[in-house]
Computed example of a mutant assay.
Amino acid sequence: MDKGMSVINTVDRKGNNLKITVEGVDDQELAHFGGLDLHVKAAKAMIGNTDGMTFPEKHGDIFIAEKVAALYLNEIGEMLRNSYDDPEYLEELTNIELVKDFFNRIHENKEVLEVVEKDNLLISKSRNEDEI
């Protein structure tokens, strides 16, 4: 396990500058080169940290969790689209439709299921530790 650091300087879709800095342990389980595992770990931590959602819920936006989840899933669909060899083949499909297709076919890929099962065990262990 290597300590890693990643800095992403980018622009959001509205044209605003965005800088993301991540430091932590890169387990190198998904990819045996630096960065990808740390990237996924940081994204999961950001998704799991829902502290900011209680304010909108208290002020009338009872669908804030669903809106945030939809935006995350939409971005996952964009990632899936960009991972295909021929993204033009997918022009007729929305990002959400690509996510649905992914979910419908996930059981066909043993390697992906193993990664998810391992992650579910870590999540369950973390929940149990939080309860204690």
Score class of each variant (00 low, 15 high):
Gln28Lys: 11
His107Val: 12
Gly4Pro: 02
Ile20Pro: 01
Ala43Trp: 01
Gly34Glu: 07
Leu73Gly: 03
Glu111Gly: 08
Glu57Ile: 04
Lys44Asn: 07
Asp101Asn: 14
Leu38Asp: 01
Lys41Ile: 00
Asp130Cys: 11
His39Asn: 13
Ala45Ile: 04
Val22Leu: 03
Lys67His: 12
Met79Thr: 11
Glu117Ile: 12
Val40Ser: 04
Ile96Cys: 05
Ala69Asn: 02
Lys100Ile: 06
Gly24Arg: 02
Lys3Tyr: 11
Thr21Cys: 01
Leu93Asn: 08
Glu92His: 13
Glu23Ala: 12
Ile76Leu: 15
Asn95Trp: 03
Ile47Ala: 08
Glu91Ser: 04
Ile47Asn: 03
Ser124Asp: 14
Asn104Gln: 10
Asp37Gln: 05
His59Met: 05
Phe103Gln: 05
Asp51Gln: 06
Asn9Cys: 06
Asn109Thr: 14
Leu90His: 08
Asn16Lys: 11
Gly77Lys: 00
Asn17Asp: 13
Val115Thr: 12
His59Glu: 08
Glu92Met: 11
Met46Ser: 03
Pro87Asn: 00
Gln28Thr: 05
Glu97Gln: 06
Leu98Gly: 01
Gly48Val: 06
Ile62Asn: 09
Asp2Phe: 12
Asp51Pro: 00
Phe63Ser: 14
Ala65Arg: 09
Leu93Tyr: 13
Phe102Val: 08
Ser83Phe: 14
Lys100Asn: 10
Val115Ile: 15
Lys58Met: 09
Ile47Tyr: 03
Pro56Asp: 01
Asp130Asn: 15
Ile47Gln: 02
Leu93Cys: 11
Asn17Met: 11
Asn128Ala: 15
Leu80Gln: 07
Val112Gln: 10
Phe103Cys: 11
Glu111Arg: 06
Thr94Tyr: 07
Arg81Glu: 04
Gly35Met: 06
Ile62Pro: 01
Phe63His: 14
